[in-house]
């Protein structure tokens, strides 16, 4: 009786102790919202700042002469012909080698593999490889492709550079392939099996064509990562000063990012502007590749 009384007596006072303090809390709310919008805006502002700087610095020296000239000690005569050709050659090697291997590995892991120690080992491996710094791949390329396999690759050549980048982007392609294969509905596979096709026939004739746009999208994104990679190519010892276009896989080479790196590192301002022009070319190629990937992705989504 007595305790009950005290509780009812205390209730109003407890309720009055609770101060919602709404004005303060809403102010904090507003500050927090402003901060998070501000952070996003800042990131985008920096992106715009970066792009604007490069356009302002580089547009004045960007002309056909720049694209059609070799590297030179005189900034007004220097161009990116050798670098652009080198990049195209290396990318050709990367695409030709990484596509079959990456897609094959992806097919194996997604369609064929049983859940055993080998599959698990490969899966752990791939997620670990994705976290290895690119310059470590460069060291691997230096030791394995440029030195041990020198009779095949010819040393610090296009083939060495290409194979090093292949290893670098392999995890990306495998993951993209698996995701594209996973998106193919099982009913397609079941229909193929019901008609008596072997697993490989089902994959080759039905699953792969359906998954191809997704695989190609991943492939393009992987290539666009490879095209901007500088560190591994420097690590395998690609040249910075080349005054000829490559003639074959065993030709020494320079690439667009390396040429840009070389120009940025020089003290003269004229070379910095050339570097900016090179960056514009590189970013334009990247933009085209990404536009292609987005186009493929949209077509893929429409058809399903």
């Amino acid at each position: 009786m007595n305790t009950d009384h005290s509780v009812t007596e205390n209730l109003p006072s407890r309720a009055s102790q609770f101060k919602p303090n709404l004005w303060n809390r809403y102010t904090q709310d507003r500050i927090f919202a402003i901060l998070s919008w501000g952070a996003t805006a800042l990131a985008i502002a920096i992106l715009i700042w970066l792009l604007a700087t490069i356009l302002i610095d580089g547009l004045s020296t960007l002309n056909w002469n720049f694209i059609d000239s070799f590297a030179s000690r005189k900034p007004e005569r220097a161009g990116i012909k050798a670098a652009l050709a080198g990049t195209l050659w290396v990318m050709g090697v990367v695409a030709a080698v990484s596509f079959p291997i990456g897609v094959g590995a992806g097919i194996y892991l997604q369609e064929f593999a049983e859940d055993n120690w080998f599959t698990r080992l490969v899966e752990i491996n791939i997620s670990n490889l994705a976290g290895v710094p690119s310059i470590i791949y460069g060291l691997l390329g230096l030791a394995a492709f440029a030195r041990i396999l020198e009779p095949i690759t010819g040393g610090r050549t296009i083939l060495t550079g290409g194979l090093t980048l292949v290893l670098l982007i392999m995890p990306v392609i495998i993951v993209a392939t698996r995701e594209a294969l996973r998106a193919v509905p099982d009913s397609i596979r079941a229909a193929g099996f019901a008609l008596g096709a072997t697993q490989w026939q089902v994959i080759w004739h039905h699953v792969l064509p359906t998954a191809m746009p997704g695989i190609l999208t991943g492939m393009i994104l992987a290539l666009s990562r490879a095209i901007g990679e500088t560190a591994p190519l420097i690590a395998i010892g690609a040249a910075t000063f080349i005054a000829f276009t490559p003639e074959g896989l065993q030709s020494s080479f320079t690439a667009l990012p390396i040429q840009i790196y070389d120009w940025v590192g020089r003290p003269q301002r004229e070379f910095h502007d050339l570097a900016a022009s090179g960056i514009i070319v590189l970013m334009a190629v990247l933009l085209l590749m990404n536009a292609g990937a987005i186009y493929l992705r949209n077509r893929f989504q429409k058809s399903r």
Binding site: T53, I54, R225, G228, T230, Y261, H272, M283
Partner: peptide
């Protein structure tokens, strides 16, 4: 997509930006 562009900028471009801007 804006953030994806920021993620896709080659590192040598960031190097240019850091040193010269």
């Amino acid at each position: 997509p804006m953030l994806e562009i920021l993620a896709g900028v080659p590192t040598v471009v960031y190097g240019y930006f850091a040193l010269l801007t």
